[in-house]
Design a protein around this nucleic acid. Structure first.
Lengths: 166, 166
DNA sequence: GTGCGAATACTCGGATACCGCGTGTCCGAGTAAGTGAGG
DNA sequence: CCTCACTTACTCGGACACGCGGTATCCGAGTATTCGCAC
């Protein structure tokens, strides 16, 4: 089982947006450069976030991406669903009804498959944990452990000039 | 993100073993037929369970597979690890150190990546839930919701003949 | 000086190849059982 | 009748193709800016 790396990329991108803390759009080129990622492919992933109303895109010159909601209103669950899709990792194909089960009355399968239920229970715990954490929490954690990271990223994106020239 | 279907297959197979409740080996052909699964590919999956010491295989005529431990001692986590491997679904590639982070002192990365930590927390909850359920629990759930399933499966595997001929 | 209009350069967006991993299959090594002959 | 060795048939086990989804890339549609010109 493997999660697409788009999740990692977009989470870092959203963390960057949380650090920027303004409404100025950022181009995908800047975002890609700030983490040395393939520009075009990152763009594709960000489109998924736009479709999920996590980011919004501004076309044209001086365009780019910016957050569509506040960081506190974006959960990790939202991001995972936006990138990986809504389907569960474990997919019950109802093999209990095939083979030996084929001879049983249809009413026997009214209750959900026990295997399915157990796996679903585990995934529910996973989802619950993801939904409990927001991008704002992520920023708070990062600031706590590496206070300089936010400033470094702002500098890489050309924000917060080190000195006002006049 | 998608989990290999081998997990579903092997869980149903282990549930079947829990229903049989004896030490007689069962051939992969019988097991595959009992759920209409591809014989050879199921065999491949079962080998993974053997490597994980969940099943044991008996070669030669009248051989087959049987449980290596009691159903209460086999957790869903064991099965998932045996089939899917031990690696986590989310893999941190430390992109925080690339791009903007490259200019930061190495000591900044002593603490784990915040993104990584958050995703790991969620996966831990998932693992914990998987580890809390055993094959025996699975059988208990199945018996509760569909009491006839166990008998049907035993019959399909040629056990518990309906009538003693003499 | 000011308003307007077209050219421009920059942005995102979706359509298009590539590749690795899961899926599926096959045949060979190994072993326990069965069988026949010999004692 | 018992023992033993051989044949046999069956099992698992790993090595070999196939296909799909994620990965990566490119070029086109669209828009805000910008420059030049007319008034």
């Amino acid at each position: 089982m493997r999660m697409g790396q788009g999740v990692e990329w977009t989470l870092h991108v959203l963390l960057a947006f949380a650090w920027l803390d303004d409404d100025e759009p950022v181009t995908v080129q800047q975002l890609a450069a700030s983490h040395e990622l393939p520009v075009a492919y990152l763009n594709k992933q960000l489109q998924a976030l736009v479709r999920a109303s996590i980011l919004e895109s501004l076309p044209g010159a001086r365009g780019g991406f910016r957050l569509a909601r506040r960081p506190e209103a974006i959960t990790l669950m939202d991001v995972v669903v936006a990138i990986e899709g809504t389907q569960a990792a474990f997919r019950c194909t109802e093999i209990r009804q095939r083979g030996a089960g084929a001879a049983m009355p249809a009413a026997s399968f009214a209750e959900p498959c026990a295997v399915h239920a157990s796996m679903q229970r585990a995934e529910l715990a996973w989802r619950r944990e993801l939904a409990a954490q927001t991008i704002a929490d992520l920023r708070a954690d990062a600031d706590r452990h590496a206070p300089a990271a936010g400033a470094a990223l702002r500098r890489a994106l050309g924000r917060t000039p080190q000195r006002t020239t006049t």
